[in-house]
Amino acid sequence: MEVITRGGVITEPGNSVENKTGSWRVFKPVINYEKCIRCLICWRYCPEPSILKIDDEETKMNTPAPKEAMKRLPVVKIDYDYCKGCGICYNECPVHAIDFVREER
């Protein structure tokens, strides 16, 4: 049986990651890397936060980009375990590189 801690203290920081809120999603954002200019505006505004900023050389070079020079910049990736599908990223993307499609399960 789980015992309630004294004062309701939660001793493990950030353990909300066990809640996979991706199941809330009705619509799903999908990044079109051919169009993505890596401006990070979606990363800035994701309220979850479930848009990750990936900064390692291999991912940066191996992800398609509209211009070769952009491959120096960090890549954004959506973590579908937590994305609730609010669509802020889709609405804010300045180059319309994010599609918003119905989730199929």
Binding site: T21, W24, R25, E48, P49
Partner: peptide
Amino acid sequence: ENQEFFAPGHGMCAGCAAPIVVKW
């Protein structure tokens, strides 16, 4: 800036602006 001190999996509504404020 590259670290998150506010973890995903919370129960704020989809599209709520408060987590944007908090995370920043």
